[in-house]
């Protein structure tokens, strides 16, 4: 089993929380993993990415080779397209539909969505609205993770456990909101 995932978005959008959840779940499943992150300058509102590699065998490279990612999980629509050189032809692209517009020349959203729909396996959802329904606008990243969960080769319950572990420090209410967000993301895909 090999599961190569690109996580992406804009600095400050919480992609490292998604990474932390998948990481904890991978440890529970006793998988080998490597997860490379971007720190430093790009975190100031620039594009950020994390390469996540899960396997039942030793993982060598910290970065995913081009054309071999099974999944792109993006919390921002334009950012989801930036990493297409990594996506395999059979891979899935799961993205938030809400743009994060902090540049003067951000393209029209429909042009972006048109490009995303050209990818055979794409899922576009309004994670912010779903997160709001779940009880916290800040859980949009976890909604996206839920929507991507069918393509992550680990059981859904292990992702739920990871969320419990990650957020328990912040109180039961936050744990429940994030679990609800995760499930809402998943049920969007199942519908």
């Amino acid at each position: 089993m090999k599961n190569d995932i690109i996580l992406c978005g804009v600095g400050g959008q919480g992609i490292l929380s998604i990474a932390a959840v998948i990481g904890l779940a991978a440890v529970e499943n006793r998988l080998f993993l490597k997860q490379s992150e971007v720190h430093g300058m790009s975190q100031r509102g620039g594009d950020v990415q994390s390469h996540f590699r899960l396997s039942d065998n030793h993982v060598y490279s910290d970065i995913i080779p081009y054309g071999q990612a099974d999944l792109i999980i993006s919390v921002e629509p334009m950012e989801s397209l930036r990493y297409l050189p990594w996506l395999s032809k059979k891979g899935w692209l799961v993205t938030n539909s809400n743009p994060f517009n902090n540049i003067p020349d951000y393209p029209p959203l429909d042009e972006i969505l048109t490009e995303i729909r050209k990818i055979k396996n794409n899922i576009i959802l309004d994670a912010d609205a779903t997160a709001k329904e779940a009880g916290s606008v800040r859980a949009g990243n976890i909604v996206i993770l839920g929507a991507a969960s069918p393509f992550i080769e680990m059981s859904f319950s292990s992702l739920e456990n990871a969320i419990r572990k990650l957020f328990t420090r912040k109180g039961e209410e936050i744990v429940e909101v994030n679990l609800k967000a995760l499930r809402a993301g998943k049920s969007f895909v199942n519908q």
Partner: peptide, 20 residues
């Protein structure tokens, strides 16, 4: 042989770091 994926569509703009 080098594996390749798709191209970055032209619609994608640079997003340099900026002041918060």
């Amino acid at each position: 042989q080098v594996s390749t994926g798709g191209k970055v569509p032209v619609v994608v703009r640079n997003r340099p770091p900026s002041f918060c």
